[in-house]
Amino acid sequence: MNAALREMAKKAESRPFYLAASLRLYMDSEGMNEAALAKALGCKEDTLAEVRLCRAPRGEANEFQSDVDRIAAQFAIHATVLAEACRRGEVLRKMRESTTTDAGAYMAARDQEDPV
């Protein structure tokens, strides 16, 4: 088991460029660990580290499916499970960003309203 590659995949969770970021949010939302996700995708945990270090699929529908199919074919994993995990993860990431932005705007507005 390549521990270094798994560690790198873990660090990639904080970078939306990587599939690891979406998959982390998906796992958290499902209460899954890596072993469970690997099983759902139909691969070993070592392979999952390599999957997580792929670039996240692009946003446009045809590009998204093409990228998912490319990754699924490369690692012989279930494309439908990967697509669902990517979509869910991406939605969760955008919701989180939106919530953070809204909270920031709300606090800034409150700062302006509050008497000094």
């Binding site: 460029f17 990587y18 599939l19 390599e50 999957v51 270090l53 792929c54 670039r55 996240a56 699929p57 692009r58 990228d67 490319r70 990754i71 490369q74």
Partner: peptide
């Protein structure tokens, strides 16, 4: 070329 597998 943005091949999604290349970074891995």
């Amino acid at each position: 070329a943005r091949d999604p597998v290349a970074p891995s």
